[in-house]
Design a protein around this nucleic acid. Sequence first.
RNA 1: GUGGCUAUAGCACAGUGGUUAGUGCAUCGGUCUGUGGCACCGAUGACGAGGGUUCGAAUCCCUCUAGCCACCCCA
Length: 462
Amino acid sequence: MSKKGSDKPKKVPQLLRGMKDILPEEQRFWDFIRQRIDGVAQTYGFSRIDTPILEETSLFVRSIGQETDVVEKEMYSFLDKSNESVSLRPEGTAGVVRAYIEHGMLNRPQPVKMFYTGPFFRYDRPQAGRYRQFYQFGFEVLGDGHPVIDAQLMMLAYSLLSEIGLPVTLQVNSVGCPTCREAYKKALNDYYRTRKNAICEDCKRRLQKNPLRLLDCKVPDCKLLAQDAPQTVDYLCEACHAHFVKVLEHLDGLEIPYVLNARLVRGLDYYTGTAFEIWPVAQDENAEPPNAICGGGRYDMLVKQLGGPPTPAIGFAGGMERLVIEIKNRDINVGMPPPPDVFVAQLGDAARKKALTLFEDLRRAGLKVAESFSKDGIKPQMEMANKLGVKYALIIGQKEMLDGTILIRDMENGIQETVDFQKIISEIQKRLSKNNVKATNHNHIEVERTPPPETDLTKLPI
RNA sequence: GUGGCUAUAGCACAGUGGUUAGUGCAUCGGUCUGUGGCACCGAUGACGAGGGUUCGAAUCCCUCUAGCCACCCCA
């Protein structure tokens, strides 16, 4: 502030780190995505579930795993007023499984198919498409372990992205059940024991904490080693192997293009068996593998682990921010919100009163009405009408008040007609329906050059 | 948590040690209490915060904060 010392710089409230406002003009992207999500949910028979944002901390510790970064350092955990440790949900599956058990959904016809969208929280360092409060959608199928379920869920994920208009690839793998996992981890350890010096620091840590993660390290040297490292699919037990083969057969039958990706693993502890991700197709040829926009897999042990009966399940989740980024990158047309049908402009106090009630009448008649009742001049009102892109402006001033009439102005060609005020609603409806017919017959709404002949009252082209 | 880059008005930018920090778009008002898209005129509004160097700092240095990008993690 270069002013006098008298006024202190104002401390203005500011977004918390990693938080983001989704402003009105952004909403159409989000609406677009949510509409497609609702669409596939409906066609695939999934019902919406909303679980609380706040849960017992232990729910996430027991499901995601104490050792994971998500639990260890990224959770928003705190003691509530009764000294209970609670956490903002960092992901969606745990809450859904909790609800499944808590509400006895195992007594419903199985499988139970549910989906969700909503905010999640991780105390992470913000980055492209990564916020501390972020939005995910997820689909979960509980109570059925048949491989056909896996394949159809992947089909759903693929369909969703296709309907959004994104070119994607499906990456599939199986990480095996706890039994195969032990054998595999041992093999992996043996492989890396003699190569410890060749791997990066992160990988040394991974070897201890999360050996599977060694496989998708991005350091070139590690990558090279990972190429020849044992693969999870070679260590699957008989049951897991058979399951996975069936899954792939079903995928073949569905003719989804998929990539068998031996280096695909999951980050959360609860995953077993089938694992998959959806990747956007890289824009340029030799780019690094892009961030997954969906990821998921089987979690056949989780329900039991959280205190329910042994129950197979599978699910996936996707990041909304990442989708929005891809949609923008690809210039996918998500459409603009439709403009209002009419604008009501008024001039003078009496007209303003009348306009206020006319607005209500029009609204009740099902019209989308815009206005700037607080403005006095007609000019700013016309400017607003123009900016909003409305088809017709209804103008009522002193003269019209005396005559019991109202002006209809066609905003495209400037032609105005005086109409009996009593007939305004039917008149405007007639015109709008005519336009709608035109709009559906052609791709673009053509401006009608010649005004309709049946109502040739006072035409004033301006 | 680690590293790199950045921070000037609501937005996009200019200003590289020297008057009162500019421009475009946007916003509000006027030209024009009865008419939008065009034009002209005017107004609002900013050097992220703190400290240092200097006669003098938006400009140089330090710290903090935030943003972006990558790692990490994950979707």
